[in-house]
Design a protein around this nucleic acid. Structure first.
Length: 772
DNA sequence: TGATGCTGCGTTTTT
DNA sequence: CGCAGCATCA
């Protein structure tokens, strides 16, 4: 075990105890723990890398070290990441460290790209051809919809989207149809779920296609059924490196374990406190269990933080310590002082946006770049108010993680043409283009095609070829024939023609370009422009297959970071980023932690939400400002909200209450600083989650419990749209816990303006005052 | 084949 | 409330 005590917070600069005679320069920049993580090359290693502790540096240096010490050839190292961005960054940085070696690193990439690579080499062993298509969620839904209808199941009751997530879930957990547990077999359409899963897998084989889950699961199947193939890979990979291990799912774990079996030199880097993707299959237990899963594992903690100020670190650490299931780390920094984490209550979302906007303007005036500033929200609907505000203030901003290029309809259409050319059995692509542009191949013709394909269990293009030899479809025959001829011609040309030229040919000959040119709608020119962009982007690829692989595996969403703009994004997409100034709005019960997370996943959900909060705070280098609104409009209904329980979990010493408004009173001391313990309390979101069993005892939590007990019926207050909804009258004399006696001057929904005898005019929530 | 009206849904998102 | 997806009709 590694003892963090070895390096005390005081020893900022240190001398390594037994430095090798000539330490390579790239090792000299590491601290003790980092160095240990790099030099511990034998056996399983878990590097627990807290936020901002130099994780990427360790990963890349370790790679460089392995290579430079001659411990492995570039081709003998398997290095996996989750995102293309991370893979690219690693690639880049290794190249910077040692030139000329990166080209040989064929096994550096995302789980999915490497899975696809392995699968393509041995596709025939799992019933695919090596040019198989990779389907995205959209394709999956369309395919499953058909299977559901074909199985005579009411698609409205049991919708395809739901089944897709079930199947994905099974695949994430490493279940082929045979292995799905009995207990889960009835979760869809009274037990037909598994049948559909099986039918879906069969259909994929006919279509010569794999979905994302298959890229790993089929790999595992391949390894299990073909020991020789597995052995071959095991012997190849002398070293295995895994980034963001806390995000791995069960299938990925199994995959890794199989591959690392021979040498057992597996190094996983991650942070259990930053596991925020449980909802899409990430299994936090993978990292928690590491030492059990890999006997003899060494655990190295990176705890020195190079990003944030002590207050920010302490606030985040205090918050996350409320979680039970964690390995535990103590982050520290050599940096001195800095601002406390700001916490601010506002009236509503609009005010929140206004106040943050003012702050941003002030920071900007005092010389900060806008690109130093980020606003991190829990849910994307929160972005709107900020966008509105930024527009009126003309503050330039960028939304990170918007709609994606490859998801646009016109792009998908043209890609479908290319898919059919590259892989004629790709029915989903064929269906997409068969009558686009319109060529008179309507419902009836397609149905005939479809029936034949099903009967022969072949693909649509194969069925089409057979149909053309008959008199089955007299009317559409000519159109179908010419379409098939076109596809054949393109397929032939694809062997000689550069793929960009082919793309242009397809655009012209298919009539797709013409269709857009004749389209008079406002966005048609933009679509054409997108298509040109698509063709341009193909240039950097060697061939059509390479390009298509890229498209299906890389949902690129790069933005030029160079402009000076405020960043607006969700907490999820902020992971891995850092900003000098971070605003964290919307810390309200029900929104954050999100009610749904609590309802569906109980305490596990709550802990994941808390990790999300931790991720949010730790994005900040210098300044971090949290806020919550007392009222929030969702789906155009006003609701009063309670401050997030996470607010209560921030250690008071590291928090500063910013109270420009006298919303809840300004003198509230520490922990339960915002809540009025008196007065009837309404909570926005309903539902009694299974979390009530939890042992959470903080004030915020207790308040929610109280509220639930008090009025067991409606937890949702939705009357506020109606200006007369409050049961107070104008001019009525009321009493407020904090402000004393006063008279109501105006009423809007549950907001009252009251002229207090001592405190003056204040806006308060109706439920916080009582008649007098 | 296109337009129209209705219903249901509304957290996070990569590959 | 606003939107997407569907069904229905002309």
């Amino acid at each position: 075990m590694v003892d963090a005590s070895e390096q005390s917070p005081q020893s900022g600069d240190y001398v390594r105890p037994s430095a090798p005679s000539t330490p390579p320069p790239y090792l000299a920049v590491l601290n003790d723990e980092q160095l240990k993580a790099v030099e511990t090359t034998d056996g399983p290693v878990l590097v627990l890398a807290g936020a901002g502790t130099g994780k990427t540096r360790v990963l890349t240096t370790r790679l460089a070290y392995l290579l430079q010490r001659g411990l492995a050839w570039p081709s003998q190292i398997l290095a996996v990441t989750f995102t293309n961005k991370a893979a690219r960054e690693m690639h880049q940085r290794i190249g910077d460290l040692i030139s000329g070696v990166v080209e040989g690193m064929q096994w550096l990439g995302t789980f999915h790209s490497i899975g696809a690579k392995i699968l393509r080499r041995h596709a025939e062993l799992v019933g695919l051809k090596n040019n198989f298509t990779i389907l995205d969620t959209d394709d999956q839904i369309r395919l499953l919809k058909k299977l559901i209808v074909a199985a005579d199941i009411d698609e409205k009751r049991w919708n395809a989207r739901h089944l897709v997530s079930l199947i994905d879930n099974w695949k994430n957990r490493g279940f082929t149809p045979e292995k799905v547990p009995e207990s889960e077999s009835f979760t869809f359409a009274n037990g037909k779920g598994i049948e559909l899963y099986r039918a879906y897998q069969e259909r994929l084989k006919v279509l010569n296609a794999a979905d994302f889950g298959d890229l790993l699961l089929e790999c595992i199947t391949l390894f299990q059924n073909n020991p020789d193939v597995l052995t071959n890979f095991q012997k190849r990979f002398k070293y295995v490196l895994v980034d963001e291990y806390q995000d791995t799912n069960v299938a990925q774990y199994l995959w890794l374990r199989l591959l690392a079996q021979e040498y057992k030199n597996i190094c996983c880097v991650g942070d259990d406190d930053q596991s925020i993707y449980g909802w899409r299959g990430a299994e936090i237990d993978n990292i928690l269990r590491f030492e059990k899963d890999f006997p003899g594992a060494k655990v190295i903690r990176l705890e020195r933080n190079y990003r944030s100020t002590p207050h920010i670190l302490a606030a985040a650490s205090g918050l996350i310590s409320a979680n039970e299931g964690r390995l535990g780390k103590t982050l520290w920094t050599g940096v001195e002082d800095g601002e406390k984490v700001g916490v601010r209550g506002v009236w509503d979302g609009e005010e929140e946006a206004r106040v943050i906007g003012e702050d941003i303007e002030a920071y900007h005036r005092s010389g900060r770049s806008l690109s130093d500033i980020a606003i991190l929200v829990r849910a994307s609907f929160q972005m709107r108010e900020f966008e509105d505000r930024f527009l009126t203030l003309s503050i330039p901003y960028r939304v990170v993680g918007g709609p994606r290029f490859y998801e646009r309809a016109e792009i998908r259409d043209v890609l479908a043409y290319m898919r059919v050319v590259a892989q004629p059995d790709d029915d989903l692509a064929f269906e997409r283009i068969v009558n686009k542009p319109k060529r008179g191949l309507g419902q009836a013709a397609i149905q005939t095609l479809y029936n034949l394909a099903r009967a022969r269990s072949c693909s649509l293009t194969q069925a089409a070829r057979q149909l053309l030899d008959t008199d089955e479809i007299p009317r559409a025959r000519r159109a179908l024939s010419s379409l098939i001829q076109m596809i054949d011609r393109w397929a032939a040309e694809s062997k000689t023609l550069p793929h960009t030229d082919l793309a242009e040919t397809i655009l012209e000959e298919s009539g797709y370009a013409e269709m857009l040119q004749n389209d008079k709608s406002a966005d048609a020119p933009g679509r054409l422009e997108n298509l040109k962009e698509l063709v341009r982007s193909m240039e950097q690829f060697e061939n059509l297959a390479g390009f298509l692989e890229h498209v299906s595996l890389v949902m690129e969403n790069e933005q030029s970071k160079s402009d000076d703009k405020v960043s607006l994004m969700t907490l999820h997409s902020a992971k891995g980023l850092e900003f000098p100034v971070v605003f964290l709005p919307g810390w309200e019960e029900g929104l954050f932690p999100h009610q749904r997370s609590l309802d569906e996943n109980g305490i596990k959900g709550l802990e994941e939400e808390r990790r999300l909060a931790y991720v949010g705070i730790t994005r900040a280098k210098e300044i971090s400002k949290i806020s919550f609104a007392a009222n929030r409009r969702m789906y155009n209904k006003w609701s009063s909200t309670l401050p997030s329980r996470f607010m209560d979990e921030l250690p008071a010493d590291h928090v500063e209450v910013i109270s420009e408004t006298s919303l809840y009173g300004s003198t509230a001391p520490n922990t339960s600083m915002f809540a009025e313990e008196s007065g009837p309390i309404t909570v926005q979101f309903g539902g009694g989650g299974s979390i009530s069993k939890s042992g959470y005892q903080n004030p915020g939590w207790r308040r929610v419990q109280q509220a639930k007990r008090r009025d067991s019926v409606p937890l949702i207050e939705e009357s506020a749209n109606d200006p007369t909804a409050s049961d107070f009258d104008l001019g009525e004399r009321v009493f407020h816990q904090k402000f004393g006696y006063g008279r109501i001057k105006s009423i809007y929904g549950n907001k009252l303006t009251i002229e207090f005898e001592k405190a003056g005019r204040k806006k308060v929530i109706a439920s916080f005052v009582e008649r007098h």
